[in-house]
């Protein structure tokens, strides 16, 4: 081995290069913006109502589940249906980031091997596509909001009875905007980290696919944390929700949108996850960014 063969001389494995990749990726807004739109247009290319299918399927699922679970859990429809709908919309976004994130680089094999571009472009493409889908789903939220405006703006309303009284919808709804940004920023690291790992180990998408359904039922989306202690028992039951990071991510966006009592501790948990996640993603990008074109 000559001196030049030592890893020190190989400039591709540095945080500087990983960071440069991410920064250049963000700069190419036109590119990932266009690719993300293209994905949506492509998916609904020959259907009559096109991307409205996103909205429609969300509406059908949310209303159906809302009606069913409000009866199962004995909750008032006026507050439970919006709760479930918004939770489900946020969940779809998180679900997309995790499952489509694992496919980020695998799905872009052709482009990665034929055109030089920062890898982060593909992660941003995935997150931007999901953001656009979320925007379609917000239409359902708007309709729900109009229908149940009275129920949601009543101070002290309960989602499931008996339960915690909620503050009701007011100006704090604007907190949904930073909450969404935080969610999207997390989506990028998820796509980068899981994308790199899944490109190398093709079992990872399957593992995640197997676990993610469980996560859906284990997270307070179709049920409320209030229900955990409905039959008495210790306070430890609250931990079922509190120890689940998905719960905190959903709550920072759901709480302002339906006027739930907001709590800073959700933000704290999300903040920690964001920092740790980005750190891991940067490490993965530093070590394996240059390997991805070889692996896809």
């Amino acid at each position: 081995m000559t001196a030049a063969d030592t890893p020190l001389d190989n400039p591709s494995r540095t945080f500087g290069r990983a960071w440069e990749d991410i920064r250049n990726g963000f700069r190419q807004r036109d590119l990932w913006g266009h690719l993300g739109w293209q994905d949506i247009k492509q998916r609904y290319r020959r259907s009559v109502i096109g991307p409205l299918w996103i909205t429609l399927s969300m509406a059908v699922t949310a209303v159906g589940l809302g009606l069913l679970y409000s009866q199962l859990l004995g909750a008032p429809i006026g507050t439970f249906l919006p709760y479930l709908t918004v939770g489900f919309i946020v969940w779809q976004y998180i679900l997309g980031c995790v499952t489509e994130g694992t496919e980020t680089f695998i799905a872009n094999e052709g482009l990665i091997k034929h055109l030089p571009a920062p890898l982060s472009v593909y992660a941003l493409r995935t997150v931007w596509r999901l953001t656009l889908m979320m925007a379609h789903n917000l239409l359902v939220y708007a309709i729900i909001l109009v229908i149940f405006f009275g129920d949601l703006t009543t101070p002290g309303y309960m989602i499931s009875t008996p339960g915690q009284p909620q503050t009701g919808l007011d100006w704090t709804v604007v907190l949904a905007i930073p909450a969404f940004f935080v969610l999207a920023i997390n989506g990028v690291w998820v796509a980068l980290l899981f994308g790199v790992i899944s490109t190398r180990y093709r079992d990872i998408p399957q593992v995640i696919g197997a676990l993610i359904n469980l996560a859906f039922f284990g997270t307070p989306i179709v049920w409320t944390p209030d229900l955990l202690t409905r039959f008495g028992g210790g306070d430890w039951r609250h931990l079922i929700a509190e120890l689940n990071p998905f719960y905190h991510f959903i709550q920072i966006l759901r709480a302002p949108l339906i006027g739930n009592t907001q709590s800073w501790h959700h933000w704290a948990v999300v903040g920690v996850v964001t920092i740790v996640g980005w750190f891991l993603a940067l490490v993965a990008m530093r070590n394996y960014r240059a390997r991805v074109p070889y692996w896809v």
Partner: peptide, 21 residues
């Protein structure tokens, strides 16, 4: 074109690249 980075050794590319593969 910078699509593959060398496994050992190094490479430096300066300029706007257009590859047609």
């Amino acid at each position: 074109s910078g699509i593959y980075e060398p496994v050992t050794g190094g490479s430096r590319i300066v300029g706007k690249i257009a590859p047609v593969f």
